[in-house]
Simulated scan of single mutants.
Amino acid sequence: MTTFGYLLPTRGIVFSSTSNAELTARASADVVGLARQAEALGYGAVWVGDSVLAKPRLEPLVTLAAVAAATDAIELGTAVYLPALRHPVHVAHVTATLDQLSGGRLSLGVGVGVRPPEREEMEQLGVDYERRGATLNEALAVVSNLWEGEPVDHDGERYELDGASIGFEPARTPGIYVASAAFSPSEGFPPTVRRRLAAHGDGWLPIAMAPEEYAAGLERIRELLAEAGRPRNAVDPAYYVDVVLADSEAAAVEEAREFYRAYYGQQVAYGSKRSLSDDEIRRRGAFGPVDEVERRLAEYVEAGVERFVLRFPAADQREQLRAFASVADAL
Rank of each mutant, 00 (worst) to 15 (best):
A54W: 12
P56G: 05
R57F: 12
R57G: 05
L58N: 12
E59H: 08
L61N: 00
T63Y: 11
L64S: 01
A65E: 11
A65F: 05
A66I: 02
V67W: 05
A70H: 05
T71A: 00
D72H: 02
L76G: 00
G77L: 03
G77P: 00
G77R: 01
T78R: 04
A79P: 11
L82T: 12
A84Y: 09
A84K: 04
R86I: 03
P88K: 03
V89C: 05
H90Q: 14
V91E: 11
A92G: 09
H93W: 07
H93Y: 10
H93R: 09
V94Q: 14
T95Y: 00
T97S: 10
L101W: 14
S102Q: 12
L106Y: 13
L106V: 08
L108Y: 00
V110S: 09
V110I: 06
G111W: 13
V112H: 03
V112C: 12
V114F: 15
R115Q: 15
P116G: 04
P117R: 06
E120A: 15
E121N: 12
E121D: 14
E121T: 08
V127R: 12
V127K: 07
V127G: 10
D128L: 09
D128A: 13
D128C: 07
Y129E: 08
Y129P: 13
E130Q: 14
G133Q: 10
A134Q: 15
T135D: 11
T135R: 15
T135L: 14
T135M: 13
L136E: 07
E138Q: 09
A139C: 12
A139M: 09
L140T: 05
V142G: 07
V143E: 00
V143L: 07
S144Q: 15
S144N: 12
W147G: 02
W147F: 08
E148F: 04
E148P: 06
G149T: 03
E150L: 11
E150M: 07
P151A: 02
V152P: 15
H154G: 08
H154M: 08
R158S: 10
E160H: 15
E160P: 01
A164C: 12
I166A: 07
I166Y: 06
I166S: 02
F168C: 00
E169A: 07
E169W: 01
P170V: 02
A171I: 01
A171P: 03
A171W: 09
A171V: 02
R172D: 08
P174C: 02
P174W: 00
G175C: 02
G175W: 02
I176M: 03
